[in-house]
Amino acid sequence: MPIELQNKKLEMRKTREGFGHALVELGEKNPNVVVLVGDLVESTMTNFFAEKFPDRFFECGIAEQNMTNIAAGLSVRGKIPFLSTYGAFASCRAADQIRVTLAYSNLNVKIGGAHGGISVGPDGATHQAMEEIAIIRSIPNMTMIVPCDYWETKKATLAAAAMFGPVYIRFGRENVPVVTDEKTPFVLGKGYEMRAGSDVAILACGVMVAEALSAAEMLEGKGIHARVINLHTIKPLDEEIILKAARECGAIVTAEEHQVNGGLGGAVSEVLVRHHPVPVEMVAVMDRFGRSGKPEELMAAFGIKDVNVVAAAEKALKRKQARS
C-alpha cells in the first residue's frame, strides 16, 4: 500500500517493528518490563527483546488463553508484562481472559495484537483480525490504541507502559507508509489534526490514516477541503475532537481496516448521535470475512483504499448539503 503525498513516495516501514523497538527501550529503562509470546517471536518482533533480556522473556507456546493469564499473574507480582501474538488470537481466543481476569481486575497487562486487518494478505481470513476494536472497546477498563505507522506504534507502546491498566495495541503485518516522525506529539486518548479543512472531516486510525491523507489530496483537486484527524486511541475516545469536527465540518467520514460493526465508525457515531448528529459515512470492511491475496489488491477489493475514502467524503458532503 505505497502512498504518494505531494507527489512524493512515503517511506515504508512495519508498525510491529515500532513495537519491537519500543520493548527494547522499555526493557533497558525498567527491569520490571517482561515480554511473553505465543510461538510467534519473529512475527511479533519480540525477538529484539528476547535477545537482550532472555531472563525476562517468556515463550508460552501455542496457548494464548494461558499466556494472557500468566501475564496477569506476573502483573500481580509487580511486573509490567507485554504479551504478543496475532490479533485474531489475542482478542478472540483470549476474550474471556481479557474480560474476566485482566479488565475486571484492572491489571497492568499490555497486549500487542499483531497482524490486524485485511492487509495481512495471503494467510487469508483466519489470520486477518478485523474484530478487535469491537471486542476490546466493549470491555470496561480497557484502553485501546490503533497506531498508524512505525513511529506511532513505538510511541503507543511507550505510552502503554507509562500508564497503569490493561491496554490493547493493534498493529499490522506489512510495511505501511510513515506519515509521522519521531517528534510528532503523541498523547494517549487525544486525536490530532493532520490536515486542515472544514468541508468534511475524515477520522481514521491505523493504516487508514495514510489512505485518508491521500484521499484528502484527491479531494483538494476537486475543490473539497477535507480535514484529516488521526484517532489513534479508540478507547478512551477523544470526544472533543470528534464533536469539534462535526460542528465545524458538518460531515464525517470514518476510515478503518476493521469490520464496520462496532469499529471506529461505530464508536464515533455513538458520540455524534448523542451530542451532535451529522451525516456519517464509514469506510470499513462491510461485515465480511477476508480472503487470500496481496495486501494492496485486498484493500482495493474490500473497499478501503483512498479512492473509497474520496467517494465516502463526497457522499457525506452531498448528505450535508441536502440538509441545509
Partner: peptide, 18 residues
Amino acid sequence: VSSGSLGQGLSVAVGFAL
C-alpha cells in the same frame, strides 16, 4: 485477581510463580 469464569486461575498462579 477477580475470578468466576472457570479454568483461568492456574495460569494466573503460574504467572505469579514465574
